[in-house]
Simulated assay, not measured.
Amino acid sequence: MIKRTLTLAALAAAVVALSACGDQPQESSGSGVKQDGAPYTGVGSSQYAQGGWKAGDRNSWEQQLKTRAQYGQNDYTRMSNQ
Rank of each mutant, 00 (worst) to 15 (best):
G42N: 00
Q47W: 14
A9F: 11
Y40K: 02
G22Q: 15
A38V: 03
A38F: 10
P25A: 08
W61D: 00
A69Q: 12
A69W: 00
S19P: 01
T67L: 05
G30A: 10
P25G: 06
A55M: 04
S29I: 12
Y71G: 00
V15D: 04
Y40S: 04
L65C: 14
A14D: 03
A12E: 03
Y40F: 15
V33D: 02
R68W: 05
A69P: 00
T7H: 13
S45W: 06
W61L: 04
V15A: 15
R58C: 05
V15N: 06
V43C: 11
S60K: 01
G56E: 03
Q47C: 06
S60L: 07
D23T: 10
N59G: 11
L11N: 02
C21G: 14
D57H: 04
A9W: 06
S29Q: 15
G51W: 05
P25L: 11
Q70D: 13
L18R: 10
P25D: 08
A10G: 13
S29N: 15
G56C: 00
Q50D: 10
Y48R: 12
K54V: 08
D36C: 10
N74Q: 04
D36L: 13
Q50N: 09
S19F: 06
Q64G: 07
S60I: 04
P25I: 07
